[in-house]
Design a protein around this nucleic acid. Sequence first.
DNA 1: CTCCTTGCGCAACCTTTGGTTGCGTACAAC
DNA 2: GTTGTACGCAACCAAAGGTTGCGCAAGGAG
Lengths: 125, 125
Amino acid sequence: MNAARNAPGSVAVDDELWSAVGDPIRRRMLDLLLTGDGGTATTLSEQLPVTRQAVAKHLGVLGRVGLVHDTPSGRERRYEVDEAQLARAVAQLSSVGAAWDARLHRIKRIAEAIQHDRDEHDPDD
Amino acid sequence: MNAARNAPGSVAVDDELWSAVGDPIRRRMLDLLLTGDGGTATTLSEQLPVTRQAVAKHLGVLGRVGLVHDTPSGRERRYEVDEAQLARAVAQLSSVGAAWDARLHRIKRIAEAIQHDRDEHDPDD
DNA sequence: CTCCTTGCGCAACCTTTGGTTGCGTACAAC
DNA sequence: GTTGTACGCAACCAAAGGTTGCGCAAGGAG
């Protein structure tokens, strides 16, 4: 239990953003907030398989990483997506995806190269 | 607490895959397995901030969704990434990212259109 | 062959996180 | 003013991530 280095072009850039988006419910909430005209904890909970309280907690998480922000209005509290921050999150997703993808391709190419090499040096192996 | 519909081109496709790669440690593990020549629970734990036992549990999760598979050899148990499955995961990440990105752009365009509309109909609002 | 090392798996236990219910409060409509 | 509705807070529960401790099996050294 030690090292934990930060491989370049890889993971561990903003784990907070990731874990915020990692939850299925929270992804769903972002989706609902984007499609609808924003929403409150109550309206969201009506479209989700969890209670208003659970939604409120999730909104808290999303708010803490800046993905949503809230505007109290009367006795309601309206939430909406922070577009810039969501764009950031999207960038991270695709960044990690791209890194893995690159590795996969590289590995495949190396494997093929090795195979070629073996064929040339030792054709009837 | 009800609806939970499945918005097209959006979330909730394979929540299992998501939650598997949603964990920072597991992402790190995949990374290590990809860069190194695979690895065992012990070797991975030496490069991570958690114990071998925790790593073993994570490997269990990754194995259950098919992202890695293991080959016992002597008293070691070697793990390696299932490339096809990881590619699938990458596809999902970029899919969700793309959906959000599209929504952001669409919203921005609509907002601009409305603004234009208002300007034309009611220039000195 | 025996001993000792080492890599693993299992089990118990702790802590955090997602989720629920219950309750008190504030704002709005009647 | 009373009633209804949206919230926030607190207590409580279950599952997930993590740790320690143990016992066992497989290789290597003597």
